[in-house]
Simulated assay, not measured.
Amino acid sequence: MKFAKMNGLGNQIAVLDARERPITLNASAVEALATAGKGIGFDQLMVLLPPKNPVADVYTEIWNSDGSKVAACGNGSRCVAWYVMREMNCQNLVMETEAGLLGASKVGPNIISIDMGEPILDWERIPMSERMDTMRIELQVGPIGDPILHGPGVVNMGNPHCVFFVQDAELAPVEAVGPMIEYHPLFPDRTNVGFAEIVARDHIRLRVWERGAGLTKACGTGACAALVAAVRRRLCDRVANVEVDGGMLQIEWRKSDNHVIMTGAVALESDGNLNGN
C-alpha cells in the first residue's frame, strides 16, 4: 500500500493511500503506526479512500496520533491535495472529509490553498456543554481575581477550537494549560487550544495545543480559528498572515460567502510502500 511522509509547516503528516485496497483502522493500530521508530511516525494520519460524493475526487479519513478520529485537519488536507494533484496532474480538486467537501487549488509548486468552508460559531455546534457567547466565553485560568488567561473565543472549523489572546505567544503556558482546556467539561468532544498574539492587524503569532496530538509546529484549522476569533473582536483584518512554529499561513475570512481560505506550503519528505505491499 502506497504511503507518503509529508509535512505542512512542520506538522508531521502521513498519507496512506487505501483507494485500491480499503482498510479498517482502529485506535490501537493508529497509535502503533504513529510511533516513530516502530511505525511510520506522524502527528496526523490521512487515509485516502474512494469518494462517497460523486463530485469529490477523494475521500479522506483523518486520525490523530493518539488514535482518535477527527473530522478536519487543515495542514493534512493541504498535503492530501498536493499528493492527489501530483497523481492527477491537475491544479484543482475537491476533497471529501467527515466535515464536508473542501475545494483545493495549487497556487505554486508546493503552495496549496484550501477552502475550509464557513466557521461554526453557535455554542451547540462547537459543541459546548453550556450556552455562552462564543466571541468571548466565561472561562479563565488562574486565581479568580487575577487570572493568567481569560475570555477566549471559540470557533469550530470542522473541529473545535478555544483561542486565548495573549501578550506574548512565546511565553504562553501552552503545555501547562493546553491539556487542562482540551479536557475541560465545557467541551464534550474535547477541544484544540490556541494561544494567539496580535502582532499587527495583518499578523498573528499562534501556538496551538492540538487535541489528540499535543503541541505541534503548525495547525491549519487552528490558524483559521484564530483569525476568525480575532476578526470577531476587531483585533485584526479579514486577511492576515498567521505565524506558527513551523512557518507562515495566509488566512482569509471572505465577506462574500463567509468562507475561510487557508494558503500555505507543504513538503514531501519520503514516499514508498507500507509493509512492502
Rank of each mutant, 00 (worst) to 15 (best):
R205M: 07
D189E: 15
M46K: 12
V260S: 05
I114V: 15
L249N: 04
G276R: 11
L139F: 05
S105T: 11
A81I: 05
V166A: 11
E118F: 08
I198L: 10
G212M: 04
E175H: 03
V208M: 03
N192V: 07
D133V: 01
W253D: 06
G264L: 08
S113W: 13
A240F: 03
P188I: 06
D257R: 11
N64I: 04
K2H: 14
V228I: 10
A176G: 06
N89Y: 08
D168C: 12
R19W: 03
D237V: 04
L93Q: 05
G220Y: 02
L235F: 08
K5H: 04
E130N: 07
V260I: 12
K255F: 06
F42S: 00
G8K: 09
V55I: 14
K5G: 00
N7I: 04
D66Y: 00
G153W: 02
M116H: 03
W123C: 08
L186M: 11
I181C: 04
A200V: 01
K69P: 04
D17F: 10
L171N: 13
A18Q: 07
F3S: 09
D133I: 02
V80Q: 02
V55H: 09
R238D: 04
V84G: 07
G108H: 00
D115L: 04
I112G: 09
Y183R: 15
G246F: 08
K255E: 15
L49F: 02
L49Y: 05
Q140C: 02
A81R: 10
I112P: 09
N110R: 06
R232D: 14
L49W: 09
V55K: 13
W209I: 08
N273S: 12
I40F: 00
V141K: 00
P119T: 06
S28D: 15
W123S: 14
D237Y: 10
P185K: 05
R190H: 00
L227C: 10
Q91C: 08
V163P: 01
M85S: 01
D271T: 11
N275D: 14
G212N: 10
V242S: 08
L268D: 06
A240E: 01
T35L: 12
V58R: 07
R233Q: 13
P147I: 03
I204C: 05
